[in-house]
Design a protein around this nucleic acid. Structure first.
Lengths: 211, 211
DNA sequence: CAGTAATGTGAGCCAAGTGCTCACATTTCG
DNA sequence: CGAAATGTGAGCACTTGGCTCACATTACTG
């Protein structure tokens, strides 16, 4: 079913006051992230989310006015996690290698918790106006973060360090995503290769003959 | 709607004899690839596919017994295209650079035609037994192709060239996928950076201190 | 420990489609 | 021309999922 997406996507229907309800909300958001990743937006049902969270459907609707509001909340939390990874990596005052490792490990961790949620949240799930704004803000911040993390350390003559940084970020994301699909995110070899890939790209750059 | 997936996923309900019907089938497959990419499996409706293909729903069911058979056919065609890209790249008798360029360009081309179909076809859409077999065959062939394309040209001490090759393939796919999302697949700068990324990874490999 | 507020429950309504059929029109070809 | 191939689309029969609401349970508070 498509079911219309109601305009009323107010943040939260009721403010949690006890620890119990806060735990419920966390469980619901976790479940939502998982099911979104597993099934995609349109196959995600609020009933399934509630069941996976171990709460009744009524409890879900106590805090989220509708399906869209639920996914918006999930999205916000996910964005926060990603930006936190980027901040941690960028702020690392130690070596360049440390920053790279922090970035790669952070990306792997996030995707280990919710293997495919990222993609669905970013591309597939619909957004209301507020969600679109959140999304734009995130994209900007994320891009800036990646550029800060990578361009500073690029030697050589990359034609455009901005683009190079974004390409590199997308490459890392692609590898992590593929690894999540194959369920080998925990593999140390993968981690090593990913770090090596980033190192290689940052260290060596040279003009390549375009066709 | 989920609607049960019937067991009868016989290949094709009727064999096309005239050019007209062959064109119809192509149009349907193109439309299916597009809509699958845009909406994902469960939001893809046979009615929408028919409409986008510019044919009536009846015509669609003349050739494909059900929704699953349609997606299986789309998948088979997509796999063939990808393997063709890999073959072309691997078989290039000219320089290593040429093979890399051929691979990158091929990937870009496929994703330009059907921006997000790949992901849905590969991960999201359900499969019947035959589809699962096709899929396994493809994964094997594809991996072998990537390994053949990359490992031969790797100098240096990659811990495991197999894994390195797969990581690199996933990286390229990730970048192309992200570019498709941002609708900048046509950008020459992107192409250059992608080629440079592959070159960098193949040329320089060194041990990196793990955490 | 009452009394009240907070939280949790889940059967089920109902509107929204969707997969798919079939009786019929149109086109192609020998 | 006549038969085979192809194309049409209204609509049936059914599944389904978002969401409500009347009620139970648990936690705070004085």
């Amino acid at each position: 079913m498509a079911t219309r997406i109601p305009a009323a996507t107010s943040k939260m229907r009721k403010v949690p006051r006890q620890a119990r309800s806060r735990a419920t909300i966390e469980a619901i958001l976790d479940a939502a992230a998982h099911i979104l990743g597993e099934r995609g937006w349109s196959a995600t049902t609020t009933n399934a989310v509630a069941e996976r969270a171990g709460v009744s459907i009524g409890s879900l609707y106590q805090y989220f006015p509708n399906k869209l509001a639920l996914v918006e909340a999930t999205r916000r939390r996910h964005f926060d996690e990603l930006l936190a990874v980027l901040c941690t990596a960028t702020d690392d005052t130690r070596s360049r290698a440390c920053r790279i490792v922090a970035f790669v490990d952070g990306m792997i961790d996030v995707h280990r918790r919710f293997p495919a949620a990222h993609r669905v949240l970013l591309e597939e799930a619909p957004r209301d106006a507020a969600g679109a704004a959140t999304h734009r803000r995130f994209e900007t911040e994320y891009r800036k973060g990646c550029e800060a993390l990578f361009t500073a350390n690029m030697r050589g003559n990359a034609t455009d360090t901005r683009i190079a940084a974004r390409v590199l970020a997308a490459a890392v994301a692609g590898v992590v995503h593929e690894a999540a699909r194959l369920d080998i995110l925990a593999s140390p070899a993968l981690r090593q290769e990913l770090i090596a890939l980033v190192e290689a790209c940052l260290s060596k750059r040279r003009a390549v003959a375009g066709k």
